[in-house]
Design a protein around this nucleic acid. Structure first.
Lengths: 331, 331
DNA sequence: CGGAGTTATGTAATCGATTTCAAGGGGGTT
DNA sequence: AACCCCCTTGAAATCGATTACATAACTCCG
């Protein structure tokens, strides 16, 4: 190895052309004479040349990367969304960087929102400060969103989805329906609660009893304990939880106490994460098209990077998935 | 906005110093006179200057990024490992890029293994070609590994872990123990199968009946169907599956048929993904320290990038987690 | 007071590619 | 023969930071 790593001038020298020509072969082959091109390609092969992306990016004033800001990387809900994004970004020549907004200290996460770090940002966390994001790089919001921050959003209709879920429980004959909410201050929490209340109101039923939650298994378990702690006569006969993880925790707790789902209580989740189809009982839930959310978000971002100024929302359809955890109330 | 984006010369001009001095304030403040430093910092504030990473990286001949090659981003098993890696890399000033080795076409994934793209690579997929990886950037293998490829590995002792699992089943009194294996050709598949066979042999029991699998829920479900298809007298009384996801599929299928776990069959998983603690029955399994795997892998890579040549393995301890899915055989 | 040593700063080369601008050569037209 | 155009190609500027080397000022000491 005479050179640590061949550069474009090494290729140029070997091929007997200028660096400009080599560069053209690399990025715009058809404008180079066929024979010259062949020579250069041969030189590239012989030297084992690989281009330096830092240099190209510097010249192009771009980074070739897109950052996804995820509230919690450990949450499997996001992994399929990331997979969808990667599937769109990779063919377009972009790298996907992921960052956990919780793991890294508050505002420092915004260091990713710089043009020299990333060409664009996909934000999946509605709790980030709008000021920090403004005027930096193209942004797309997915799933969650930031009130007062104008950017294209890729989302589902959470309110309507919650309505569908509760309508189903009502149709089964339930009259006392509880809701286990998401974390306080989250936009999804509010939308799903609103949908729940709307559906009940539309059927002349009283507002739901609401148990606190935060989308995690553990909080679902606590909700289960809280439900069990009620006098049997006062227990809602159906519970709609704002996430599947919580539903799993809830069902686990209820079954542990010896009661049975859906005989003693109907349970409805939200998200349709893969596992819940295989539990016993299989969970009835709202299916979120997670891969599609990732793909659309990535595509919207690419459009934005390409100069598209549109900021209308993309609302993807959900599906009511009925499985074994919901049934008519007893008696 | 007169400038699109202030550069280091703008700061220098405003502070009345050279770009060299500004650069020094940025990366080595203590060698600059306190008063000058104050001036420069003030100028940085006034101009709203942000440094361009592409330029710095070009000069430093580094990228500031680390790539994780994951077999399947949708698999929640990996998300917690990624979280662990991010927790170590971010404070060290590295970005974490993730790529799905399955989603992107075969060899093209190796484009990430270039010094100008990433300063290092964490490979979680044992099926990548060793030749492609050799002699490129520092590599650390995590979980899986590539036979014949020398690099530090961060892993668990899969053989021994499988042994522990099967020993437990034997201790409960089981004599007919089946194994549901991982995908053919995978190093984990072989190690876990070997451990299973070893444990049985040590107790004078015949080799296990082996059902094919590939770590996915669906394959676990198929294994459940295959188990059910056996004449009741020939059914193994316990099944050890090479992943929790498969165990979930298996249990789901068995319970669907009206049988009960662990009364009719004991089930043992592998991984201890978060959800399985909340199923009914809760799954007995082998706990893998996923966050720690991620952290250690990231740390090893940082060491390697820093010049450490060591390539010994880091073997992290697993735990046998006993929950409700295993019990003595009937009768 | 001259010389060594220290500290602080500036000048200019450098990282490795891309791209503007200019120019050479060939063909066709009048 | 003069002119124009197109096709190729090269020279050199450029992207925005870092840093080796040079230099100036100041201190210390015999």
């Amino acid at each position: 190895m005479q050179h640590q790593r061949p550069k474009i001038v090494d290729v140029a020298r070997l091929a007997g052309v200028s660096t400009a020509t080599v560069s053209r072969v690399l990025s715009n082959p058809q404008i180079v004479n066929a024979e010259t091109r062949r020579l250069v390609e041969e030189a590239i092969r012989q030297t084992g040349y690989r281009l330096n992306h830092a240099a190209r990016n510097l010249r192009h004033r771009r980074t070739g990367g897109v950052v996804a800001l995820v509230p919690n990387l450990s949450n499997s809900f996001f992994s399929q969304i990331l997979a969808g994004m990667a599937a769109v970004l990779a063919p377009a020549g972009y790298n996907l960087l992921v960052a956990d907004t919780r793991a890294e200290g508050g505002a420092s996460i915004l260091r990713y929102a710089e043009p020299s770090r990333a060409d664009g940002l996909i934000v999946l966390d509605g709790s980030l400060p709008a000021e920090g994001l403004a005027r930096r790089v193209p942004v797309v919001l997915a799933c969650e969103w930031i009130p007062g921050f104008a950017a294209p959003r890729v989302k589902i209709d959470n309110r309507q989805a919650a309505q569908m879920a509760v309508e189903h429980l009502i149709a089964l004959g339930h009259r006392q329906i509880a809701h286990v909410a998401g974390p306080v201050g989250n936009v999804l929490t509010d939308a799903r609660l609103a949908g729940t209340e709307l559906a009940l109101k539309a059927h002349g039923l009283p507002p739901p009893r609401v148990f606190p939650g935060d989308f995690t298994l553990a909080s679902g378990q606590r909700a289960g304990a809280a439900w069990l702690a009620l006098p049997p006569g006062e227990r809602p006969t159906a519970v709609f939880l704002a996430s599947d993880e919580m539903a799993c925790g809830f069902i686990g707790e209820v079954q542990h106490s010896g009661l049975t789902v859906p005989r003693d209580v109907s349970v409805m989740g939200f998200d349709d994460i893969e596992l819940v189809a295989h539990m016993t009982p299989a969970l009835s839930t709202i299916h979120q098209p997670r891969n599609a959310i990732g793909r659309h978000a990535a595509q919207r971002l690419l459009d934005r990077i390409g100069g598209d100024e549109g900021s209308e929302d993309t609302v993807l359809p959900v599906e009511l998935v009925l499985r074994g955890s919901t049934a008519p109330p007893r008696g």
